[in-house]
Design a protein around this nucleic acid. Structure first.
Lengths: 165, 165
DNA sequence: TATTGTTATACTCTATAACTATA
DNA sequence: TATAGTTATAGAGTATAACAATA
């Protein structure tokens, strides 16, 4: 706990008070704290859920591509993917025309999991920022996207039949 | 490294594409990555520098107050403060009218350190977001502040003479 | 040679709970 | 009893480098 209910005395951070980078960090901590408060009770790690949802929306996505986009290193993605596979949430498949790669798919269980919890997660994520008007959120979103170069361009290469690794 | 230069294929994240919370995280990672790239070469941890600068701007600040504001737990703040003290950057002093508390001050060395690196840090932090126009940054800053309730209100209690712990 | 993913390992952050000393 | 800070410890997240299989 952050030493209970602080009286938050006036405190200056000088040039950082007008720094986008600094406030970005503070805001991100604040929002993820709020989101967690709603989801932790249900033992629903937001990171794992995000990956499952992304796989559901992009069946056959290669794990390296997903890792790059979510800013997770390859080695850490391996661990996450292994975990989700062990829980029966996803399948790892080898595209026949590039046998180095691993393509990911949801299992029925994974699909059911996403289906079951999606609304709850989206509500929690939404409530965490509901101190902003809808229009303010739209403006903020646009600026954050520009800052993060999101989404990046260039098309996704197709893939053929898939087999077990 | 994130598996080199990815071709970033088109990939959808569904409802998260319009989620402030999600983009907030991605943008924060992107910006801090850029900032790090400039500062890591000089072995200048931005977190430590921020604390030193804050102490310089708020001499006598109690470490719990600083921790609360920067969203660091008390126990972790203890470690950070101890580290900076061992390096001779700060002094820990006990306010005579509340001998439980610890007030923080920069030493001469600490002051010199901040003085020496401040411009470099501010430039790096600024460059990391220079893909946004000045006016866009101003708008973004305002929204982030609202989101993070920054700064919180209520005055800081004064403190008297200080002695060594 | 370059790329995809894996393994092993270590380091940084962060969180929790029990403790002390002061109030 | 409550508060400020400390200690010990554990866990999550992340990073790095060496490696295997494939291109």
């Amino acid at each position: 706990m952050n030493s209970g209910v602080n009286e938050t005395p006036a405190l200056t951070f000088g040039p950082f008070e007008t720094s986008v980078g600094f406030l970005l960090r503070i805001a991100q901590l604040t929002v993820s704290e709020r989101t967690f408060a709603e989801l932790n009770r249900r033992d629903l790690p937001i990171g794992e859920f995000t990956i499952l949802m992304a796989i559901g929306l992009n069946p056959g996505v290669r794990q390296g591509v997903l890792a790059g986009r979510l800013r997770i290193t390859g080695s850490n993605m391996t661990k996450l993917v292994r975990l989700l596979e062990n829980r029966g949430m996803i399948r790892r498949l080898v595209p026949p025309h590039d046998r180095r790669a691993i393509a990911l798919e949801l299992t029925e269980k994974g699909r059911a999991h996403v289906e079951e919890h999606q609304d709850l997660v989206l509500r929690a994520v939404s409530r965490a920022v509901d101190c902003l008007e809808a229009q303010e959120q739209a403006v903020l979103l646009k600026l954050l996207r520009k800052l993060a170069d999101w989404p990046p361009s260039s098309p996704r290469p197709p893939h053929g039949e898939l087999v077990e690794p």
